[in-house]
Write a protein that binds this DNA or RNA. Structure first.
Lengths: 144, 144
DNA sequence: TGCAAAGTTATAACAATTACAATTTATATC
DNA sequence: GATATAAATTGTAATTGTTATAACTTTGCA
């Protein structure tokens, strides 16, 4: 799993073509999500960026996440009741797993034919698959 | 889709064998979920039961839903960000669809092999599949 | 009948998110 | 390049769903 680097100018370009004005804050926030595998929440992002951007406000994080999601640059991961998490929107469809031990959220493959059982007449524009359980690391700890 | 009737005594019996004391309120709340196809939220249940049980408190609804869920008699449907919905726990595994038009939540078939793409080493104890889109009724309205 | 445990209730607290208004920053026009 | 205008950011306050607390009530059992 090599992590691709999204330069600020590349992120800005993506925002530009998506119709979102690439401000300093939005670039930092989008970069945060794109360079993390942690599916951060608004508060995670605020905590991570605050030291470098002391004037950043939590409201801006929420506003930016909303704008970037509406523009199709981010996706929401609604696996953690009461805390929305965010993911980059460029990847091939995948599902998510949340560990009950450490709370981390992992990517997983999307099951094939995930809409196979859809009732005829219903127009599906979004599919989310959420798994919960124990990650390998937490399973190891438990068994020792 | 015939709706099975769960008598109060049957619900009480189910609670009893699940280790939950079958109080008047809990029976009413459980009955509400079991006789509805709407996947009601705590507030839906409170609103529906209030006329008949004027002294019922919203806290009791939350407490009861928690107890019944922990006992395995109810399941949570976390498809509507910020509003937990509830479903009876007796059915064969199925997925859920929420209509962006009317907000209603429908049952759907669970895709076969829904864990087929699970990463080895991860222990999955819960799978949720959530679809969003437009239900047939709302699609009709839009096209007229 | 009386006691202890559990359940219900009303109120208050909480946490995540959104609304609002003022300030700041950026874009477009002259 | 200066200025008007629009958009973004910020801090504060409000909102909403849910949970904690403590008093009261009911239930089950000796």
């Amino acid at each position: 799993m090599q992590s691709i680097t999204y330069t600020e100018s590349r992120l800005a370009e993506m925002m530009h073509s998506a119709g979102v004005r690439p401000t300093l804050q939005r670039i930092a926030i989008m970069s945060c999500v794109y360079h993390s595998t942690k599916h951060p929440s608004a508060d995670d992002i605020y905590t991570e960026l605050s030291p470098e951007y002391p004037s950043l406000s939590l409201t801006t994080v929420y506003n930016s996440l909303r704008a970037l999601t509406a523009a199709g640059l981010l996706r929401t991961v609604d696996i953690d009741s009461g805390n929305m998490h965010y993911d980059m929107a460029l990847q091939t469809p995948h599902s998510h797993f949340m560990c009950r031990g450490c709370g981390r959220i992992f990517d997983m493959e999307m099951p094939s034919d995930v809409c196979g059982g859809a009732t005829p007449g219903f127009v599906i524009d979004c599919v989310d698959v959420y798994y919960k359980g124990i990650c390998p690391q937490c399973a190891n700890i438990q068994n020792n």
